[in-house]
Amino acid sequence: MEQSLITSMLFATLVAGTPLIIVALGELITEKAGVLNLGAEGTMAMGAVAAFAATHYTGNPYLGVLAGMAAGALMSLLFGLLTLTLMANQVASGLALTIFGVGLSAFVGKPFESLTLPAVPAIRIPLLADIPLLGPALFNQQSLVYFSWALLGGVIWFLYKSRAGLILRAVGESPSSAHSIGYSVIGIRYLATTFGGAMAGIGGAFLSVFYTPLWVEGMVSGRGWIALALVVFATWRPLRVMAGAYLFGGVMISQLFIQGSGLQIEVPSQLLSALPYLATIFVLVLISRNQQTIRLNSPMSLGQPYRPDA
């Protein structure tokens, strides 16, 4: 309460956007390699339950994050086995993975439903956190919020500045060319898919260990789908993914603040609740409406299986 309103709104916005950023950046890498994994929702659910269980048994939230990451990676390996090795349809397999993950997480999560975890304290960055208004919101945050920023930097550097990123993009653009100059398309796609799954697992871990420290069935509540949509609407560009995630979080938090302020507003609350979705789509479509940049940034072979010997 001694915090100003702006600070607390900004703080909440960052927290709400963080799982979306982590999951969407993971998916972005996956899609840049030409693999469309629609299983984010189920992968997050598995990550959430694994992280909760591990944190419950070890008492260490970071072991929880590792467990979530491992669970997410395993889920995506399963997806890779189906779509990359067995050449199953990626859209159908991804949807199946979501249904499977949501269901399995509910099943293995049963014993954890009545438990809670202690809240993980925020990490305060000295000096920076003393900046008025912005400091307490930006630099007195959960560790995974900082991680999401580091991840963004890492993804941008990897995709556009590193040789490995160039190869990954080549695999997504033209797998046959990449293959013909000697790269293992399937191997690289496995790596990209596993990374995406691991990030979705961390996103889930953020929800069950840091955000609302509890496990309940269905707690992901569509955030996996929002992350998937963000990647497309941001036309596969990492910075725009982050902008979109914060915009979504920001509009959601603002509408809550408006409602809670007791202001006499004559807008139906259903419309207010839909506002984050509308605003995010509207803004991202607007800034990404250039056909040429869409063509430049969307991976050409997205969703298409690749058979190296064909």
């Binding site: 607390s8 955000y211 609302t212 309940v216 509540s221 809550l256 409602q259 809670g260």
Partner: peptide
């Protein structure tokens, strides 16, 4: 749960 929590924190603030 996530949204319910956000709403709660908003009201508290």
């Amino acid at each position: 749960p996530g949204k319910e929590r956000e709403a709660t924190l908003t009201l508290i603030s």
